[in-house]
């Protein structure tokens, strides 16, 4: 869309981004507040970070969250990529409508319902609840996100490339490994990252799916936050926010560079022709 960038546009962008970022900024600034009273500034200090690292309950929860996140997002990526491949390249098979329905439904079903239904499943088959059941629960709902991301990439790429590989004597698995996978790799990686963040972020489903033996970080934060604002939570939030910011900015810079490089290579290839 052309047309000039007006004062109204500038104001709405400024106000909008202020609304989005001011609360986070306040949180980060006040995590360095030395006072126990969170809303009163009493000087710069990093003591809450120190206290956080000595709080065993938080450290345990962080480790549980990390384990669950790594395991569930990897599982979700494998399953979601398979599901995307089936949806885009699978052709017709028995129950295809049901299958695609089950891929899209978890994206819109409220967390409380997903959590409740999984908990009732785990209880009725007598599965001990803990890290394992949270991994199963998270892998199930994030595989749907992964398959949406990967299938949008699969739809857009030229199927003739795969067919050429098969014609040249590749086995289907080789063709997938050396042609399809490198092309969809960016989508698979962003699918993994999405699944990992979803797992890190989830409170409701984890609360239903876990037993007394496993507490994730969001569960721990939630139980603390119900009692009000605390400087330790501010410090923890700041750490989490910085990790995500660094991650997102790095990936977006890397993808931008990769796109530029690819464009240059294509131009050079065109010149040689």
């Amino acid at each position: 869309m052309r047309n000039r960038f007006s004062w109204f546009n500038a104001t709405s962008l400024t106000l909008g981004f202020a609304f989005l970022y001011l609360p986070i900024l306040i949180l980060v600034v006040y995590s360095f507040n030395s006072s126990k009273l969170v809303t009163v500034w009493a000087g710069f200090s990093t003591k809450w970070y120190g206290e956080l690292f000595h709080d065993q309950a938080f450290m345990d929860a962080a480790i549980v969250t990390l384990k669950v996140g790594l395991a569930s997002s990897t599982l979700a990526t494998v399953l979601g990529t398979m599901a995307a491949y089936v949806l885009v390249r699978g052709g017709r098979f028995f129950g295809r409508t049901l299958f695609s329905g089950m891929i899209y439904a978890p994206l819109v079903v409220p967390d409380v319902i997903t959590g409740l239904s999984l908990l009732l499943l785990f209880i009725s088959i007598g599965l001990d609840r803990g890290i394992g059941t949270i991994v199963l629960a998270h892998a199930t709902f994030s595989m749907c996100y992964v398959s949406v991301v990967v299938s949008s990439r699969l739809v857009s790429f030229d199927r003739a490339l795969e067919e050429a590989a098969l014609d040249l004597g590749c086995t289907p698995w080789d063709a997938f490994k050396s042609v399809t996978l490198p092309i969809i790799a960016p989508a698979v990686i962003s699918g993994w990252l999405l699944a990992f963040t979803l797992s890190l972020d989830d409170l409701v489903i984890a609360s239903f799916a876990s037993g007394p033996s496993a507490t994730t970080l969001p569960m721990k934060i939630f139980s603390q936050v119900r009692l009000g604002v605390s400087p330790e939570i501010n410090a923890l939030s700041t750490i989490l926010i910085s990790i995500v910011t660094v991650g997102v900015v790095t990936t977006s810079v890397l993808t931008k560079q990769a796109a530029v490089r690819r464009k240059r290579q294509e131009q050079e290839a065109a010149k040689q022709d």
């Binding site: 609360p23 986070i24 306040i26 936050v225 604002v229 939030s237 900015v249 977006s252």
Partner: peptide
């Protein structure tokens, strides 16, 4: 675009929590 998406990647719980400190009776 990145500035709009970035908050989406940061924890939902933390973004809700940030408002407790802002809106409380002693809040900012």
């Amino acid at each position: 675009m990145m500035l709009i998406i970035l908050p989406f990647w940061t924890s939902f719980l933390i973004r809700v929590y940030a408002w407790i400190g802002i809106l409380g009776s002693q809040g900012y």
